[in-house]
């Protein structure tokens, strides 16, 4: 039989040793992990969509908007503060800066991958450092944003007769229905934790590059795998940015 003959020469696909998807086991598994992670994030964002569309939307003019428990807030009226110039109305500017930081760190990551293909250790080190810096900068921005969101800046709203509530927690918030703050914490928190994990992994890659582990191994595939994860984190932020802050 022809197939037996081929197998004897080790040419059959079923003999193993070939990668039908043209990617190594590790890279493939990273792709499928990211797939499952995409489902988790989609579940969160879609639940946000469900709850938001089941609440009343604000109908009036944007300028006349006030926070109320009766309708879902307009994001640009909630997220309008920037560090050092608090009190000024700068809607979505800070979150725009955060988006820019994350996109830039994605670029530096892909440049590190490119340098890895060329076995250029110095360049991998340089671009990994920039990527780390971007990740840490993003996390710092998020820390500020959470603090600001939790403490609140403008006049609070009355929760019970005579008491005013400032900021937000999982039970109450001054911005709108309780679910609004809950989703803010869960979605940006889950994403932020991914960024944190990414920064840890990036540091590991940087460390292994500096110690010359990948150079001795003969390839920089780990940079590629962690790069895939890092781009995914950036990708999720693109969706969070649109569905949580813009729409």
């Amino acid at each position: 039989m022809a197939s037996t003959a081929a197998a004897a020469h080790g040419e059959s696909t079923w003999d193993g040793g070939s990668s039908p998807m043209g990617a190594s086991y590790g890279k493939l598994m990273m792709w499928f992990f990211l797939m499952s992670d995409a489902f988790t994030f989609s579940a969160l964002l879609i639940t946000y969509g469900l709850v938001r569309s089941s609440h009343k939307a604000y109908q009036g003019a944007v300028d006349a908007f006030t926070f109320s428990q009766n309708y879902w807030p307009i994001p640009e009226k909630v997220f309008e503060s920037v560090p050092f110039i608090e009190g000024w109305s700068a809607p979505l500017v800070f979150v725009g800066i955060m988006t820019f930081i994350l996109i830039m760190s994605s670029v530096t990551m892909v440049l590190a991958v490119e340098a890895g293909h060329r076995m250029d250790r110095k360049a991998v080190e340089k671009w990994m450092l920039w990527t780390l810096l971007g990740g840490i900068a993003f996390l710092s921005c998020q820390a500020w944003e959470w603090t600001h969101f939790i403490h609140g800046a403008h006049a609070g709203k009355a929760v019970v007769e005579g008491t005013t509530f400032f900021g937000a927690n999982l039970a109450h918030n001054q911005y709108g229905p309780p679910d609004f703050a809950a989703f803010f914490f869960f979605i940006t928190g889950f994403h932020g934790f991914h960024v944190f994990s990414g920064v840890c992994l990036n540091f590991l890659i940087y460390f292994n590059t500096v110690t010359g582990l990948y150079e001795r191994r003969g390839h920089y595939e780990m940079v590629e795998k962690v790069g895939l994860y890092w781009h995914f984190v950036d990708l999720v932020w693109v969706f969070v940015f649109t569905f949580f802050y813009l729409v």
């Binding site: 490119e114 340098a115 293909h117 060329r118 076995m119 250029d120 250790r121 360049a123 150079e215």
Partner: peptide, 8 residues
């Protein structure tokens, strides 16, 4: 024994 290629 490591050949570093020039940037693409």
């Amino acid at each position: 024994h490591i050949t570093v290629l020039p940037p693409d």
